[in-house]
Amino acid sequence: MLIFSVFKTLTDHTVTVELKNDLCITGVLKSVDQYLNIRLDAIKVENAEQHPHMMAVKNCFIRGSVIRYVQLPASAMDIQLLEDATRRESGKKI
């Protein structure tokens, strides 16, 4: 639930999602759900010349399970808040 909340606070920020098929997609985070599926708007695929497959796609839904990393906007995040929330959450039994 913690990570889900973090992604929710980052709605309307630009993020780069790196998939397990090595595709990198940059776009505006529009929504996220409990599975950490992600909806991106105004997407750009890295190395667009080598990856024209999704040229006609402007917004997309990415399945959480195929995500390897998400590069986040550091300036939009409160580190102290993040660590406090993690300590609180880890106090409960997971």
Binding site: L19, N21, I43, M54, A56, V57, K58, N59, C60, F61, I62, R63, S65, V66
Partner: peptide, 11 residues
Amino acid sequence: GDQICLVGEVD
């Protein structure tokens, strides 16, 4: 669903 990686809207 578990075979899907990504769903995009086609322009």
